[in-house]
Nucleic acid binder design. Sequence first.
DNA 1: GGTGACAGATTGCCTGACAATCCTTCAATG
DNA 2: CATTGAAGGATTGTCAGGCAATCTGTCACC
Lengths: 224, 224
Amino acid sequence: MLLPSTTTLRRSSTSDDVAALLRNTIVAGQLAPGTQLREVALAAELGVSRPTLREALRSLERDGLVMHRANRGVFVASLGAEDVEDLYRVRVVLEASAARACAEATDDALAALRAAFEEVHGSWGGDDLGRLVDTDLRFHAAIVALLGSPRLDATFAAACDGLRLCLSAIGASTPHVARGPAALEQHRAILAALTARDAERAERLVLRHIEVNRSRIARLFAGA
Amino acid sequence: MLLPSTTTLRRSSTSDDVAALLRNTIVAGQLAPGTQLREVALAAELGVSRPTLREALRSLERDGLVMHRANRGVFVASLGAEDVEDLYRVRVVLEASAARACAEATDDALAALRAAFEEVHGSWGGDDLGRLVDTDLRFHAAIVALLGSPRLDATFAAACDGLRLCLSAIGASTPHVARGPAALEQHRAILAALTARDAERAERLVLRHIEVNRSRIARLFAGA
DNA sequence: GGTGACAGATTGCCTGACAATCCTTCAATG
DNA sequence: CATTGAAGGATTGTCAGGCAATCTGTCACC
């Protein structure tokens, strides 16, 4: 290898940049669910042409972040209770499977998991909710990465985007930060079980951890 | 219901039609992996404009059916051994999880599973390989549907497309049809375990069934 | 009050074009 | 002879503009 892998010259295309920008804006909650994304206005605002913007929007649609009604336009997706249910179903399946497979996990994946945990631990004191949720989900993504499947990683990443959209939509800031220390303790226990390759205990802990979150979010949705 | 469901007014967009057409063509093996899909020529041949075709290609790229090299164009994906490994990892995770969850599955999903089995059974005698693989995978998709998660269903469907591409690429016709009766018997056993809601047995049978297939395909790939 | 039609707005899709980038070929040089 | 360098051709990346189709909202009318 002559060059560091970051030098890979992979200049991202404009529509990819636009898609990434819109994705971040949406999951950050800066675009309320239900708001219409008009092509001409948005394209002008972003300084790109309509076809380019359309490609980006189509990409977001496939991720479930925007809804597309024929001849009406695209709207920021407003996820309902059944969507939350589905998203957590994805999490349960992937994370539980990963926990059960921790015996066959590579050392690299376990090292990445530990690194993700340190990152979560380090930034937990901050009051930036967005970054907190980010690092939290990154820890869980590292769990899924134990499976060693890029495709499942992608599925989980899409589900994370959906969850972030849900969280920011209902403004779940205060309850989540309040739960910080408890979640950290659970993360530590999960990490310990996984590195010890204790599949059964890890799966049990992961399932309980997710279930706690799921019921809390579901309750918030029921109240809203 | 006032109208037949086909009248659903949901005029599929042109780019969706194009994407579906290309998807079928690719997974059917009528486009050899590695062949370049030139935009102008293909757009002219399909009678659509370039932007429309680009949208369709972008959709296929997200499904992993085509590869996109910057400023070079899109090529029919040529999946390697590690891709096959990944695809089967997806199958193992999703189908095993679904089998374990059969206790909580809805009756509708179980009915759909039985229907899929009947369909496989009915068309098994035919010599049309494409349809055989289709129905086989539809049975497995019905297993995954026990989870009740549209997002996981979509992930599995994408994996199925990848698998079909692999199979048609290596021309796995003869070994697969020869295996027909054995697979049918395994399917019957899996269906029995699932409808009996015997999670443990169902998972064991599913895992073995998938593993048999995986090792066979992997062997074919090693020889090619 | 409910029903129909009209106007406005927006998308769906196409045509055409230009710049940027990449691969190939070929000549020049050590 | 192998390697380097540059020109040429082809293809993609992106933009601008335009027209038809379709949906929504409003308003007159029964």
